[in-house]
Structures are given as structure tokens and as C-alpha cells.
Simulated assay, not measured.
Amino acid sequence: MPIPPPDPDAQAHSDRLRAAIHADIAASGGAVPFSRFMELALYAPGLGYYSAGSTKFGRAGDFVTAPELGPLFAECVVEALAPVLRQLGEGADFVEIGGGSGAFAEVALGHLAALDALPVRYAILEPSADLRERQRTRLQQRLPAALFERVEWLDRPREESWQGVLFANEVIDALPTPRFVIRNGEVMEEGVASASDGGFRLVEVPADALMTAAVRHVEHQRGDGAFRDGYRSELLPQLPYWIQAVMGAMQAGAMLFIDYGHPRREYYADNRPDGTLRAFYRHHVVQDVFARVGLQDITASVDFTALAEAGTGAGFEFAGYCSQAAFLLGNGLEQRLAAHEANAPSDRARFSLRQQVQQLTMPGAMGERFQAMGFEHGVAFEAAFLAGDLSFRL
């Protein structure tokens, strides 16, 4: 099925962002790191993919996230995290990183209330002003006033001490990522320069000490020996700093990350010589990340070994790692499905619930491609990962 072309207004928007990126490239001496290009393409104020006003999530957008499918995903996440909130008692917060359309928060708050495990505050750390307003409108319209009053939006991580849970679904994959390539045994960093046709082109410059050390660390651990000439991929040496930034002054609690990705040995295997970088546009996977700039998402899979290193490096203990399917099944998916089926008004509604389960758990859908990883400090969170432990693959 061909990719639909953007309408004139969308194309004009893309042209404005492309011009802004060209200006940034010119001001930087003719090239910028790929991570800078990705940052501008996704987050440039008023122009980037996540900063502008187009619909991103759901069937009318470019991709469907798990919370958009229905209530089961969020309810199972709450089933896993509610015991942590109870252990911490009054004063615990729930912090969601990147709130998407607000679908997760809507269901999560309702189920937390049903479990008598409401946090004192439900905070959404959302960098996009447009998405914040969409979330606010949705939650104000759909939540009881008493629940909506607990919601607040953060422009930056908490600076004051706090305890509770931190949750991020499909967030790390959208962090602006550096790219590297091996040339004659040396580590080079991919950059982006302006092309003569008005688009963009890749260039290569010697990597700095931080990236070189990070690539050699991965190379040593992956188990396939040295990267061969021309091997290219993504790498996030700044991931430990990002984790420490988003948790802020978190003193106790649990962190849960769900995303698509691989353990390190699989991520950097020889049979993946071009990395995992791709774009999404109108439910199509796009390999040309320079196309339709500002109108398509750009993403890279998560190195879950790097995430484990970053979480424990931030002072938390590793709690567990498993596929999304195992995580949801281990945290009440069958029970939540039965409860919704019992209240379903029609056979069609029950069929929709079954389809939701299939999409969340089947290996060819989200079940195996997405994984869950948790960390704990001062609480017990390991029980959430008892089904299908994959930590041996890290």
C-alpha cells in the first residue's frame, strides 16, 4: 500500500522545519551530529514532530501505542505498581514520562482508585506543550473532578525529594540518538549536512572520546568480536544521565520502562549491520528518516542491557526484565479481561477485547517485540517480573 502524500498545509509545515534545520546546520559549520538532527526533527519548538499539533497516536495518527488499544495495558501496569504505592504509604507520587494522548493516565487513575492505591499526585512529565494541552483536555473531560485534581504537569523533573513510582512507555526509543559507523577499525560518528537538492545527507566525522569508549564497551560485550568495517548503529552514551535527570531527587520507589528493543548481544549482532533506526508515518515503517521531516516519527530500538546499566548506576536495584506479554500475563491480564468481558454489552465488544489481548501479547504483534524492565529502591518490586524472566539474556 503506497504511503499517502502530505496535504499542502502539512508540506508547508515540513518545509518550515527543514529550513530551520538547514539554518542550524549552517550555523554549526556545515554539519550537525545525527542526534541534533533528530532532536530538531522531533522537538523543535512549534515545528518538531512531537511539538506541533498533528495527531500522532491512535488509528488516525502514525502509530498505535499499547494504551491506545484499550484499558487492559494500563490496568495491568497499575496492578504491578499499586503494591509499591501501598508499601510507600501516604505521600507517594506516580510520575509518567511522556503522557502521549493521556489514554494511559485516564485508565491508570481510574484503576488506582478502584484498588484504593491512589497516589497523592499523578504527575506527567511532558516536554511538548501541544501534547500537554491535549492530555489536560482529555483528562478534564473524562475523569471525575476528584481524580483530575490529583493530576499535574511538569516541565522538568522534580527537584525536591520524592518517593513513588516512575513509568515510561515508548519514551526511550524517541530520545535523540547518536549514530556511529566503523571505518578502517576506527569509530566515526554520523552527522547530517545539507544536500544540494534541498534535503539532507549523512557525513562522517571522528567520534569523540565518550562515544568511542561507549562503542568499544559494546564491542567487547556483544560476543561477536570486533565490528566489521562499515558496521553502523545507534548508541546512547547519555542514557545514564537521562535516567538520573528524569528521576530527579527520587528517594524510594520503583521505576518501570516498557519499550521495543533487544538485549545488547542481539541489538549489536552481525546480522543487524545498519542498526534499528527508522521512521513511522501513517502506520507505515519508513527507512528514509530524512523524508517528511516534522511529519513522521523517528525512532530507534532500546538496548535493554544499557538500560539495566543506567538504572543500577542511578542507585536502584535491578528488579526484573521480561517480554511485554509475560509482564501483562503475570500482572493480571487474564483477570482484567474476564472482568471486562463480564461487563461487555455485546459479542462485538467481547471480540474487541480479545483482539486487544492478541495485539498486546502475540509474538508477531507487541508481545515479544516490547519488553518491560523494572528497578527498585527501598521497596519490593520483583514480583511483577516473576513470569518469563529474561534477565539471563542481558
Rank of each mutant, 00 (worst) to 15 (best):
A108F: 03
A123E: 10
T137V: 15
E149H: 13
L112Y: 01
F63L: 04
H111E: 12
P67D: 11
V77Q: 03
Q135Y: 04
R121F: 08
V77Y: 05
P157V: 07
L118T: 03
A82Y: 03
L69W: 08
E79K: 11
L81C: 10
S161D: 15
V84H: 08
E68V: 03
D116K: 12
A66F: 05
V64C: 01
Q135W: 04
D155H: 11
L88D: 11
A92D: 01
T137K: 14
Y122I: 07
V120P: 11
G99K: 07
C76M: 01
R132K: 15
S128E: 05
A129C: 15
I124K: 01
V120Y: 13
E75Y: 05
A123V: 11
G100S: 07
A80I: 05
A117K: 05
L85P: 03
L85T: 02
Y122N: 08
L88F: 10
A114T: 10
R136Y: 12
L112E: 01
H111I: 07
A129S: 15
L112R: 09
R138M: 00
L115Q: 12
S161M: 13
L69C: 12
L112T: 00
V78A: 05
L69M: 13
G102V: 01
H111G: 04
V151E: 05
S101M: 10
T65V: 04
A92S: 12
G89Q: 06
E96G: 04
R158V: 06
L88K: 04
A82N: 09
Q135E: 11
V78G: 03
P119H: 02
A123L: 13
L131M: 13
D155E: 14
W153Q: 06
T137S: 14
Y122E: 06
R142V: 01
E96C: 00
V77R: 03
V84R: 03
V95N: 05
P157G: 09
A66I: 07
D93W: 13
G100Y: 01
E159L: 14
E90T: 15
F94T: 04
R156M: 13
G98Y: 09
T137W: 11
A103Q: 01
E152Q: 14
R138D: 09
R150T: 09
A66E: 02
P144N: 11
L69G: 09
V77L: 08
V120A: 14
D155F: 09
L72Q: 00
L81I: 09
